[in-house]
Design a protein around this nucleic acid. Structure first.
Length: 426
RNA sequence: GUGGAUGUAGCUCAGCUGGUAGAGCACCGGACUGUGGCUCCGGGUGUCGCGGGUUCGAACCCCGUCAUCCACCCCA
């Protein structure tokens, strides 16, 4: 079908049938977030380009090649938001939240935009739900974040989740670790693949993430040669180490299943110390359902006072894909009434339909079809009750209520109709 | 940005070595001008992604282009 217009690459329409699941998931999430005492925040969908460039890191992929950047008619340099935390931090500063209370617990939900090549589970417009604690550097904040993160998934019906956790230290220790890594890799540096070579310069921590089998073989060779791979966790300063251990202790105390993943590095530069992620293998190559971590330097980088923060974001598109595979979170079918009219009762039916819609979910035929066709419509639409406005009955002040479940029907006086419907639908 | 695969009806797909398209489901109408589901009958709803080329003739062959999917990259 050669259509003139199609949804832009990497975007899609969500239709009513799919949205039933989305709405269910969103309302589950709202419930959890409210019980945790988090407040919703809504920020603009676009911001100054610089806001994202500064916070995500000039060299990050998000900034260098995935930003929807544009100039508006007033020559402002803007970008569609690639993630939510930068906007929340900006709003926190701009609206002076720091002066109102020391600790803020916030959540957000909405579309994000990244200019990357679409594939399974990856879209150019995707949706995230996220939460932040701004103002506390305590390990307990990290633990609460991870607990909330896990509880959201549990509210969606996930069980036996294991959270991957790591500590990426501070910018200082990360630099230091990067150096140790470079030294360790020095003997084989010239043999590394192109991607790894790039990363050796821009972000050495990522070199270890490579999937290139030849690179992995080189690493093996080094280890066999008696040079053990340096570990990020061994490079932590004493404060970060203590923080890390307390986070692990807190997770244990809550019985949250976790696994330390020394290779876990998050994509945005602002993360410090704790980093965590959850994956679902059924999603293919893009398996991360959500992730987060601590970002103690972010607010200061935006020109605010030193303010610690920790947060996460969850990809709703991917989560919905998993729920769909499990056929979870289906729509709760509400009882629908279908008002069927005859030749002489159409006007009355329209009136009755409008009146009933103040209280019930009501459907009707718009095209003056034969009664049989109306019943068929009602059936296909999944109605549970049909009100038949037969001419003779209506003239006597009566309405026929027919059940599409068992086919049974009975005649009710018009005056008793509302009561009868309430009775039948509850 | 790179690589591979795929584009035929609303959906899933068939279409032999080139002769201008078909099935199932869905949808619409009827049997059933006052009663749905089941059944039966009828209806194809299509610029074969788009543009060009080869050919007497192209859904099929060639070139280009667009789109989709999967993977790399990166991440949610």
């Amino acid at each position: 079908m050669a259509l003139k217009h199609q949804a832009p690459l990497g975007t899609r329409d969500l239709l009513p049938a799919e949205l039933a699941r989305w709405q269910w998931a969103e309302s589950q999430a709202r419930g959890v977030l409210e019980r945790y005492g988090y407040g919703e925040i809504r920020t603009p969908i676009f911001e100054d380009y610089e806001l994202f460039a500064r916070t995500s890191g000039e060299s990050s992929d998000v900034v260098t090649k995935e930003m929807y950047r544009f100039t508006d008619l007033g020559d402002r340099d803007l970008a569609l938001r690639p993630e939510g935390t930068a906007s929340v931090a900006r709003a926190y500063l701009e609206r002076g939240l720091g002066g109102q209370a020391r600790i803020h617990r916030l959540w957000y939900m909405g579309p994000m935009f990244r200019y990357s090549r679409p594939q399974k589970g990856r879209f150019r417009q995707f949706h995230q739900i996220g939460a932040e604690i701004i103002g506390s550097s305590a390990p307990g904040a990290d633990v609460e974040m991870i607990a909330l993160f896990v509880d959201l998934f549990e509210a969606w019906g996930f069980s036996n989740l294991t959270v991957a956790v790591n500590s990426v230290g501070t910018p200082g220790t990360r630099r230091e670790y990067g150096e140790r890594l470079r030294e360790w890799l020095a003997p084989v540096a010239s043999d590394l693949g192109g991607d790894s070579l790039q990363r050796l310069i821009s972000n050495p921590l990522r070199v270890l993430d490579t999937k290139d089998p030849r690179d992995l073989e080189l690493f093996d060779k080094l280890v066999r040669g008696g040079a053990p791979m340096p570990r990020m966790l061994d490079s932590l300063d004493s404060e970060s180490r203590e923080h890390w251990e307390q986070v692990l202790g807190g997770l244990d105390a809550l019985g949250i299943a976790h696994r330390t993943d020394p290779g876990l590095v998050r994509g945005l530069d602002y993360y410090t110390r704790t980093a965590f992620e959850v994956h679902d293998p059924s999603l293919g190559a893009q398996s991360a359902l959500g992730g987060g971590g601590r970002y103690d330097g972010l607010i200061e980088a935006l020109g605010g006072p030193p303010t610690p923060g920790v947060g996460f974001s969850i990809g709703l598109d991917r989560t919905m894909m998993v729920l769909e595979q499990r056929a979870a979170g289906g729509p709760a079918v509400p009882g629908t009434i279908f008002v069927a009219a005859m030749e002489g009762t159409r006007a009355a039916a329209a009136q009755l339909t409008r009146e009933l819609r103040r209280e019930f979910r009501v459907d009707c035929d718009l095209e003056s079809r034969a009664i049989g066709a109306q019943l068929k419509l009602a059936d296909r639409a999944g109605a549970t009750l049909v009100l038949l406005l037969g001419e003779e009955e209506w003239a006597r002040g009566e309405v026929v209520i027919k059940s599409l479940r068992d086919g049974g029907q009975k005649v009710v006086p018009r005056a008793m109709l509302l009561e009868a419907l309430r009775e039948r639908l509850k």
